[in-house]
Amino acid sequence: MKLINFEFLKLRKKSRGWLGPILVFILIMTAFPLTVEILNKNLEQAFFSILWIATLLVMMLATEDIFLEDYNDGSLEQMAIKYDSLSGLVATKIFVYWVLIGIPISLIGALYGFGITRSSESALQILPILLITTYIFLNVFSFGNALSLTKGSILGTLITMPLVLPLLVVLGKVVIAINLGISFLGFLFLLLGILSIIILILPMIISFVIKAHLE
């Protein structure tokens, strides 16, 4: 609980850390309908693709310095001395980023969904998908950032990009299911399953990677 409070305090006070990605997301979602000259119906079809890509890019941006700042100022050294494993800290950090960035983006995304599709049902359907997806993206990109902690974060994030491509395929199928009005619960459970595995494994792997950087 103490760790969660500390991480909340740090991210809350560093407004560019959480507000920046949210504003970029709003900018992309607002700019997209302005830049295309297509019928409203086509706009609806393209909306979901833009939503997933915007979410992907913004989560990549959000995790840019998830570990870098603590590494540079020596906080990670202190944590590594204090605890045998850093996986608790890693999981806490990702959770706090999800609460302050992932949840608002999911809500805003659902709101845009309602605005563009004019269907509250679609908006409600994409909300849980967005909540799960943002958490998965945060975990995967945090892993990328940990890999390239001393070499610039964008490199590591790009390395982990292929890991999220299958997820984009699943998200594409979700959109088809929503558009056809068929049940998308199967996909929802699939995403939940992926998330469960990722939550269990990735913080541990990230913790090993960070320890290797500290040595």
Binding site: F6, L9, K13, D73, S75, E77, I81, K82
Partner: peptide
């Protein structure tokens, strides 16, 4: 094994927080 206090070159301080907030982070 775990009862070590290490003070290194890096201060482990958050530049964007106040002294009081940092004291809280240092526990």
């Amino acid at each position: 094994k775990k009862n070590v206090c290490f003070v290194g070159h890096k201060n482990a301080l958050k530049q964007y927080l106040t002294v009081e907030d940092n004291l809280s982070l240092l526990e």
